[in-house]
């Protein structure tokens, strides 16, 4: 049993680490292109409800494994981006992504992922909007 656990852990760890390191490289490369001046301009020129909407759309189309978004989120938090926007980005990134959309089309037909995408868009927006108010206490 212990051997099975170690073998399973070992296999999962190296496979995940490869993907995480690749994703991390992508995230820090993208992060290095983000400038506080640009973020400030975006914060000032785009109203918060629209920021949440853009964040979730950006999350939906972003590729890569779940863990790679953290370096970008930390940078956004440092730049003073609202927690609601961060929640929309983090939830949008994982709820539906282009590759899983096509996997679901293959398994369930096109209606299921289309409806799930619509539903995810609504619940992610709600989560972001709720966090705008709750975020002060976190």
């Amino acid at each position: 049993m212990t051997k099975d656990i170690i073998l399973y852990y070992n296999k999962k760890l190296w496979r995940t680490l490869f993907l995480v390191c690749a994703g991390l490289l992508f995230a820090i490369t993208l992060g290095s292109l983000m400038k506080i001046e640009v973020v400030n301009v975006l914060k000032q020129s785009i109203p918060l409800p629209l920021q949440i909407f853009y964040a979730e759309l950006l999350g939906f189309i972003s590729p890569g494994p779940r863990y790679i978004i953290y370096p970008i989120l930390i940078k956004l938090q440092e730049f003073g981006v609202n927690l609601g926007v961060i929640i929309a980005l983090i939830s949008g990134h994982v709820l539906i992504e282009p590759s899983t959309f096509f996997v679901e089309v293959g398994f369930f037909g096109y209606r299921f992922p289309f409806k799930r995408f619509t539903v995810s868009l609504i619940v992610t927006y709600l989560a972001g909007a709720i966090t705008v108010f709750v975020g002060k206490f976190l």
Partner: peptide, 14 residues
């Protein structure tokens, strides 16, 4: 697997 392909794609984009 798709995760390995995704990893190489991300390295390529970077």
């Amino acid at each position: 697997g798709i995760d390995i392909k995704m990893g190489f794609l991300l390295i390529g984009i970077s």
